[in-house]
Amino acid sequence: MYAQMVTSEGGKARDEMTPEECAFQDRIDRGERIEPKDWMPEGYRKTLIRQIGQHAHSEVVGQLPEGNWITRAPTLERKQILLAKVQDEAGHGLYLYSAAETLGVSRDELTEMLLAGKMKYSSIFNYPTLTWADIGAVGWLVDGAAIMNQVPLQRTSYGPYARAMVRICKEESFHQRQGYSIMMTMARGTADQKAMAQDALNRFWYPSLMMFGPSDKDSVHSAQSMAWKIKINTNDELRQKFVDQTVPQARFLGLEIPDPDLVWNEEKGGYDFSQPDWSEFYEVLKGNGPCNAERMEARIEAWEDGAWVREGLMAHAEKRAAAHAAE
């Protein structure tokens, strides 16, 4: 998802836990929220920083592929909607960085780790948006996949993270709809538009399935994160739910899911579908995706070009405070 393959630290059996660790796990099992000043195992804190940080980075890097079309949006209304939506992503990044900051790491530290390649962001944002239909597909599929993950995270064990997710889910509710609305217009439009819509689905289908991460049913990291309730569902559960929800939506559009093996499985009450190419996924994670270099360049440029602005405004505020104190 936005936080893919987060390595979890800890993973102790109950009889290896200290009394404090046992008490902590009991609180989580009772459904209590953990708050910033509460005692927590170091592994819980570090894993959360990694997960929330990666989630925040994904929101901010995620501005770029959609931002790519703000200046080319085809109508004044579409332009405003897209701008508002990409602005929301910045806001969501901000809420998540704030949640991470309650764990004793600053936003600048997290940003520097991202820019140094020491922290990751979701693989999906390394794919290009080539046509206007891609903006529809990103809203429909990428936000649709993100929502699958974010709705359960409103119940995650860490209070500030859960509260950020509540706010994000509330604001996200229009994002997927705006994407689908673009897809509907395109699918019902001219032959060119319909072709663009199908092409966008073809290119974004498998990368969207990758967003959930590889199967983690045997992953110890996932097991620990689920015990801590910072991960609520397995990757496969969410992927299945996403496919089951999306296939009828594609049919309504008159578009075809690019998977010849997609078939309804009556027994499991869901679709059987083809797995994405996981070797591609690992290459993208390693930095070799179609847009990894461009995305990082854009973030580094914003950070470096913005340094004088951040320093200038801070210097002015300090001058003012000093003058005020001297009065």
């Binding site: 901000l94 900051e101 950020a164 706010r167 405004l313 801070m314 002015h316 505020a317």
Partner: peptide
């Protein structure tokens, strides 16, 4: 309380 943010001064 709705959240937090960074700013150089109270005004900003």
């Amino acid at each position: 309380h709705v959240g937090s943010l960074h700013a150089p001064s109270a005004e900003m």
